[in-house]
Amino acid sequence: MSSLTNRTKFVFGEVWQGISRSITLTIALIATFAISLSLLGVSLLVGSQVSEMKDYWFDKVEVSIFLCTSGSDTPSCVGGPATPEQKTAIRNDLEAMQPLVAEIFFESQQDAYDRFIERFKASPISANVTPDQLPESFRIKLSNPEEFTAVVNKFLSRPGIEAVRDQRATLSKLFSVLNGLRALAFGFALAMLVVTALLVGNTIRVTAFARRREIGIMRLVGASKMALRMPFLLEAIFGAFIGGIFATGVLSLIKGYLIDQIIANSFSFTSFFGWQAVVTASLICLVSGTVLALVTAWFGIAKHLKI
């Protein structure tokens, strides 16, 4: 046991010497890890936010089936306003589509008018609208909003139905932008990780050169392969760990300050990712940084540290 602590002290002493001797290299190593892991973390947070918004919005998304009114001029409305038989048929068909169709709510012309007035009460337009101008509609919530096309296909251009609208169509544009952002951030993060791997490899090589005297002596007196490599591996892991801690700080700042203090106040239409997402992203950063450091250092040093 005492030999183990003795050994640990010795190895860490050597690592510390390596770090302090090439301090600029160590700083460069930590900085690269910090930046690339932060980027990776941000891309993960963007991902969480996209999922969060999807959940939030999809929960509210409904498919609306607007029925023909006297003023409708689409081909499916040539028969005039929707008849009671048509309405019953639609409702029966919707009910047959359970469990995809989770909720059905019929909005009468009066309901539509009330909602309209409520929404536009400050606007002069509300004075010119009467209930009979607004269409009746079925408002439907889907258990899986992704499958809205099934509903659209079933009811589109059916007599008595003027239009089938899915709010998701509007949102999908937003989501495609967000998905693009997420992919971009992730791509950046990956590129930075590659750069980090190259830099780690380089730093290790320079460190090995700076320590060639020690390495030479260690080999001569019969140090094992692991004993030769350990200081380099620990140095790389040290860089990754400090860089990962920095990334965790950046992510916490983004959540605690940027999101909670600033953005959340101005954008009340959606919810934001919670601390759980920050914890997960930070852990992924720390682990992937450490693994990257280990793998790169191991292979980077193999060439320079033959037995």
Binding site: S3, R7, F10, E214, I217, V221, A223
Partner: peptide, 9 residues
């Protein structure tokens, strides 16, 4: 140093 790298007590 020669003993430390060999993990001597």
């Amino acid at each position: 140093f020669a003993l430390q790298v060999l993990n001597k007590t």
